[in-house]
Design a protein around this nucleic acid. Sequence first.
DNA 1: AACATTCACAACCGCATTTAC
DNA 2: CGTAAATGCGGTTGTGAATGT
Length: 253
Amino acid sequence: MERRKRAMVSDQLEQEDKKLMRKGLWSPDEDERLYSHITHYGVGTWSSVAELAGLKRSGKSCRLRWMNYLQPDLSREPISKQEEDLIVSLQKLLGNRWSAIAARMPGRTDNEIKNYWNSRIKKKLQQRMNTGGNYQSPLAVHQTAEERDADMNTGGNPKADLYGQAATTSEVQVHHSTTTSYNNSADHPSLPHQLPLFTGQPLLDPNAAAIQNGEHTAAQSSLDVSFSKSHERNFVEEYVEFLMSLSDDLQEI
DNA sequence: AACATTCACAACCGCATTTAC
DNA sequence: CGTAAATGCGGTTGTGAATGT
């Protein structure tokens, strides 16, 4: 309750600021400023980036622009068939946890994956559903993830539902869109043409690990019911990691 | 040619969580 | 330890190009 009040106050202040902020699509000049500022000085805090780079944008907006478009690690290639299959598989495992899915897809952002899912995969699955194909509907897929969430929230074992059938593959090739003025880094005045670099992130949360190892205290046991979102995510992510390593091991055999 | 519709993607919004003080 | 600020996330909306009528 108190937290909510504070959030509202914070939002009101943000609204005041927003009146002075620029909104909408980023211009090449703004991109240039942001890119050059971050490459020279690093990020620091996003609100300071906006100010120091001379941008009339919120820190949030700068962060989003950098994360989703300007950072050099991003792949400018269209999403491949393999990547699409991976998205479908991971969505089935993780539900709509786009950031967790993106963490397993080098060069791809959560926003990109989310958009791709909503505009293409969802539709394709729906079409196949209507033509009587042998696959699970997107709704069913989503429901599975939600059911797992509900299960975990009541202290159930999240692993129980992770052995679902493998996701189906799709056939349609995806073509690169040219809807924006410079979707490709080659068109941008200052963006490097770099291949994506994958940086693996540590997945093990100490608390989640303790719980997994059976080191439950009385205080912790209350978490069984209201298992916090971040812990729950780490738990699921660890399990996905485990499944993936298992798959690698099997392939070696 | 003019307008309407569809589509893909970029960006915003509200909220939750994390971090800093 | 409490509070404010910063960050991160997912759902939703806005925008502009492509396509259809």
